[in-house]
Design a protein around this nucleic acid. Structure first.
Length: 573
RNA sequence: CGGGGAGUAGCACAGCCUGGUAGUGCGCCAGCUUUGGGAGCUGGAUGUCGUCGGUUCGAAUCCGGCCUCCCCGACCA
């Protein structure tokens, strides 16, 4: 593609509405434009990247034996009513009506539709296993779209659904997908972790998230340095504390005046104790009851684990009014000693001797408190795992490390939930009717465009991995003399003939403009042809990853095509 | 849904407090000069000031309703 004929509207200034790197660079590099909240145009460059990612995903899905189909994005409501998700999905579902008042939705995911295919077309155990997938636009009325392509209301997703005769078969299908997913993310050059995750409300028995590590990620995960353990903090467990933390020993249950010091940070400074020696008491509303959750001062409550321990589906942090009502004190002064109500305490907090905690009296704390001696509470595992914690799997002390991740893929074994709800059955060898056992496997294709940039960028722009770059090579010509243009045309044609996708900046622009745009766009290899070099019989090759412009490699004109083609195929991996 | 912020030229923003008919930079167009890391000079084009209503002789500016967008939180296969 000749730049002069392309549509690559690069922008010098950061767009005002972009808050993360990928959104800024995709906009500045002329890849995407915002149409509305959570809706984007893919301009030519953006679409090329999207198609490259699709191609990688498609190749690996096909390699794993999955069969590509295409289901509609516009769906009749009846299918979602059949499984109850018409109601359960709530406001996230984009609903619409046709001229006759019939109810429809834009598909947020396609379990119902694919299960309908299965119940109509799969009848015998001989038809199994099957794995059907599609790459299709999905629609979700997100409460808050954000991050450019990272969280959209319309986005492109690859969703696959496996059908097996039994749980054992489903596990094999799941394992195939797990391997395919690893291949996909490896090929894209991403640094990621496969983590244990919350199976969600859909009743999945086995599931894993593929989290691409990036500081801008919305998900928190922990992984062990010493073994394979990795989990979303929502489900991560922590090895029980091996030794007690000792705080203030010479006092027992003494009240101290701590005027205006309600936060852990304030109190530790004011009293000269460490956060580890404090008990942080948080009040939660579980259904209609107020429950106190106590964790160590340097720990955070894992609300998902807390809800499970309490046997409810979710918990909410109590309002200021609820806190005052149940403790008789302002927020910041709650404590387990003398608290009237249910108390649960994290194992680590229960092991603190001589702790400092709130006195349930505004502006007062108690010093020298101990679980079991000064108050009673149910001991549970309710804290968020964090860097430095012991690994729950191998026990390595300080083995866990926290990361931020972007969820790029999620694989589940669903069991017979949908098959049961929709009557998707098959006949086994004994002619017995049985429910199909399903799995589902998603990859956020459009999200991956942004996710990759979150991991591959520098101060000058994007640095695409070769496998999904919009072009393999960015050819920059400096000058417009006939011999130079002819040399460029020869190389350009020869490279395309060799399968190298070349973007040729043939614009009548100053060198600085061309170099800046090249860095911003982020094509992995750059070749510069200048008058001086050409006179000396060479061109210049520089990888985008090399930030020092002086490190460019000079290549004799005669070897150029061969060398570049080799560099491209090497980069393709 | 709670809290905060913003809608003025293609983009980024100033002007608003203290009402008098719109400006800067980038980009765009033309010319001259320039040409290895976002050039210089000269000239030029471009605005329903988000929208509806109110106050006023007069509204980008003051007041009210609505819409949209962004950020933090909540939410989230």
């Amino acid at each position: 593609m000749r730049y002069s004929r392309a549509l690559i509207p690069t922008v010098k200034e950061d767009p005002s509405d972009a808050s993360n790197v990928s959104h800024v660079l995709l906009t500045r590099g002329g890849y995407i434009r915002r149409v509305g909240a959570g809706m984007y145009d893919f301009l030519p460059l953006g679409l090329r990247v999207l198609r490259k990612i699709e191609a990688v995903v498609r190749e690996e899905m096909d390699r794993a034996g999955a069969l590509e189909i295409l289901m509609p994005a516009l769906l009749p409501a009846e299918y979602f009513k059949e499984t109850g998700r018409w109601d359960r999905f709530g406001d996230t579902l984009l609903r619409l009506k046709d001229r006759k008042g019939g109810e429809y939705l834009l598909g947020p995911t396609h379990e119902e539709i694919v299960t309908d295919i299965a119940r109509r077309e799969i009848r015998s155990h001989r038809d199994l296993p099957k794995n059907l997938y599609q790459i299709q636009s999905k629609f979700r009325d997100e409460p808050r779209p954000r991050g450019g392509l990272l969280r959209c209301r319309e986005f492109l997703m690859k969703d696959a659904y496996s059908f097996d005769a039994n749980e054992e078969g489903a596990k094999q299908s799941y394992e195939l997908m797990r391997k395919a997913y690893c291949r996909i993310f490896d090929r894209m050059g991403l640094t990621y972790r496969m983590v244990a995750a919350d199976s969600g409300a859909m009743g999945g028995s086995t599931s894993a998230e593929f989290q691409v590590l990036a500081d801008s990620g919305e998900d928190a995960i922990v992984a062990c340095k010493a073994c394979s353990y990795a989990a979303n903090v929502e489900v991560a467990t922590v090895a029980a504390p091996s030794s007690a933390v000792v705080g203030v020993q010479d006092k027992r249950g003494e009240e101290v005046h701590t005027p205006g010091h309600g936060s852990i940070e304030d109190v530790t400074k004011f009293l000269g104790v460490t956060p580890r020696a404090m008990l942080k008491s948080l009040l939660y509303v579980a259904e209609t009851n107020v429950v106190m959750a106590v964790v160590r001062g340097d720990h955070e409550v894992n609300e998902i684990r807390l809800a499970r321990e309490l046997g409810v589906s979710e918990v909410f942090l109590a309002s200021e009014a609820d806190v005052r009502r149940s403790t008789g004190a302002a927020v910041g002064f709650a404590g387990p000693v003398g608290f009237k109500g249910r108390i649960v305490i994290d194992r680590a907090a229960a092991a603190v001797k001589g702790a400092v905690t709130g006195a349930n009296k505004t502006d007062y704390h108690v010093v020298g408190v101990e679980h079991g001696r000064d108050f009673d509470a149910q001991v549970v595992d309710i804290r968020l795992a964090m860097t430095g914690d012991a690994c729950p799997q191998c026990g390595a002390v300080g083995g866990l490390v926290s990361y931020k991740g972007i969820e790029a893929g999620h694989i589940f074994i669903l069991g017979t939930h949908y098959a049961d709800a929709m009557g998707a059955t098959y006949l086994d060898e004994a002619q017995k009717k049985k429910s199909l056992v399903m799995g589902c496997y998603g990859i956020g294709v459009s999200r991956l465009v942004a996710t990759t940039i979150e991991q591959h960028n520098d101060e000058n722009g994007i640095r695409w991995p070769m496998s999904i770059a919009p072009y393999h090579l960015h050819l920059v010509t400096l000058g417009k003399d006939a011999p130079l243009i002819e040399a460029a045309e020869d190389i350009y044609d020869a490279l395309w003939a060799r399968g190298v996708e070349v973007l040729w900046d043939d614009r009548d622009e100053r060198p600085g403009v061309k170099f800046k745009d090249a860095d911003l766009i982020g094509v992995p290899l750059r070749v510069t042809i200048g008058a001086k070099g050409l006179a000396a019989g060479h061109i210049e090759l520089k990888p985008r990853a090399e930030s020092d412009p002086k490190k460019a490699e000079f290549i004799p004109l005669a070897d150029a095509v061969e060398r570049i083609a080799a560099a491209v195929s090497a980069g393709k991996g």
